[in-house]
Design a protein around this nucleic acid. Structure first.
Lengths: 292, 292
DNA sequence: TTGTAAGCGTTATCAA
DNA sequence: TTGATAACGCTTACAA
């Protein structure tokens, strides 16, 4: 194989590179999302003549060194900021696909596979409003990229429903899960008028639900909760979590399909692929219209 | 890199091969385990001059073709039966490490990283007995390899506690999760004298708990539940699951450390590495001694 | 159609 | 010590 690669000047290797700028890289694939994505990538590429090599690093320079030293034929890149994506794009001239990247106005210069972050949040917020909620909290650990789009969807849904901007309250979860407890404590102590919480990720929603329930708050009777992603845990927890579903496996398939097109056809163009999301209405949101 | 590999006759590639006779991509728990394992492997190997290439197939022949065509320097193999492990061993003569393999008397011919399956089950069963349970069910989807060891631990703990063999009842979950419902229905209808259930995997335990609770059975008041693995979901569910903890990331580290030793030192010998487990006592098991 | 030789990028060997 | 050259295993282009 190495001889073939040397002779043909291609490697038959597809790199899966991950750029985690945080120190959460205790085990980067620990979260369900990356595992499912990777499984989908492997499954879709299997038997098509390419093989997946993985490389995880917080330093873009390491990533660029990796891709050029292995001369990988294509790249699937996860977790890259716009700045790092630019660096990578500059160095690596072969087919390159980002997952969940956000590149602003520069967007059409990159091939990206993302989801309808904005629409999902807009619809879920509208659902909450339709269920009588007039004070809703939006929780995220950052307000950039996809999470910012989700936040925009949230804000606009509130505006379009004719509610005052104050109806939507923004909470930032410092330090991820660790920041969740102090934030939830606030609610446990009754310092908030919010009747519904919309978390930008199921994992946060579930962790918050547990904290609240452990402190005597009933869900959805006392407060409604919604999440995003439809992770496995969303249907395992009780009450079952109402959330926005994205299909990670299909995302992986779309990424591979596009990547192989780019490899096989030099005329294939960059594309911003947006995968659909859909609401999964379950048991964590209460209709408070009648009660009101 | 390919040129280096060709000249030096080694690839600097570590293969991560998975052999599954089912379509594992639909199995959430296995995905979770695999993801964490893979993340651990990558982290431990990072910067040591080797790179991980993944290949998943249900056919051993495909796996052997893969490893020989890429001339990988070492292999981490997951999900191989004894028969398939033999085939792989026959073809692939370089350093090879199995994860959670069971090779019976032939064990010391293979390098394997496993856990204390037997002891974990023995201790958990003893814990259940110490909490007054005299009728315990053991649930697994198979009774080979590690699951058989867990079953042995279960049976022997019952025997050593002086209970009759009938105190331990064995349930086989046909078709995995799908087989769980009919089995649990049996309990919902009150056809069982069992006071505690010991599942060989947290995912089953959690799914069963939900089914039971959804049908009005209280946990742990009506029935106690214990699991195995300490997956993330074990501490997310309420009541929190009492389970046997294994550290998957450490397993990955141990596998890489041994593999690199085998690669760098031709005199390094095969070894059966057994990683420790420990009980995580939480809220899903009730002490029924006093109530009795 | 079949066969032969050059070349891919690096290492390793052997002479100078 | 330095420098030229064969070898790694396969592809491809060109000649027979």
């Amino acid at each position: 194989m190495t001889a073939v690669n040397l002779a043909k000047n291609n490697s038959n290797i597809i790199g899966f590179v991950m750029n985690s700028n945080e120190n959460i890289y205790d085990n980067a694939i620990q979260d369900f999302f990356t595992g499912e994505l990777l499984g989908g990538l492997e499954k879709r590429i299997h038997g098509r003549g390419y093989y997946i090599m993985i490389y995880i690093s917080k330093h873009v320079e390491e990533v660029t060194k990796f891709v050029s030293s292995w001369n990988v034929d294509g790249l699937v890149a996860l977790g890259f900021s716009y700045e790092n994506a630019q660096v990578l794009r500059e160095v690596y001239k072969k087919p390159l696909i980002f997952i969940d990247g956000y590149f602003g106005d520069d967007g059409n210069a990159y091939t990206n596979v993302g989801i309808e972050d904005y629409r999902g949040a807009y619809e879920m917020t509208s659902h909450l409003i339709a269920n009588g909620h007039k004070r809703i909290g939006f929780f995220s650990d950052n307000y950039i990229g996809g999470d910012y789009e989700r936040y925009r969807g949230f804000v606009n849904a509130i505006r379009d429903a004719g509610l005052a901007p104050e109806a939507g309250e923004k909470f930032v979860l410092e330090n991820g899960t660790a920041g969740l407890e102090p934030c939830m404590q606030h609610f446990v102590e009754g310092h908030s008028k919010i009747s519904a919480m919309f978390f930008c990720a199921d994992y946060y929603a579930v962790t918050a639900m547990n904290y609240l329930m452990d402190h005597g708050i009933r869900i959805p009777e006392d407060v409604s909760v919604a999440g995003y992603d439809d992770a496995t845990v969303a249907s395992i927890i009780r009450p079952k979590l109402t959330t926005v579903r994205q299909n990670t496996t299909h995302k992986a398939y779309a990424a591979i399909d596009k990547l192989l097109k780019l490899i096989e056809n030099p005329d294939e163009k960059a594309e911003n692929i947006v995968m659909p999301v859909e609401l999964r209405i379950r048991d964590s949101v209460k209709n408070i219209n009648l009660v009101q």
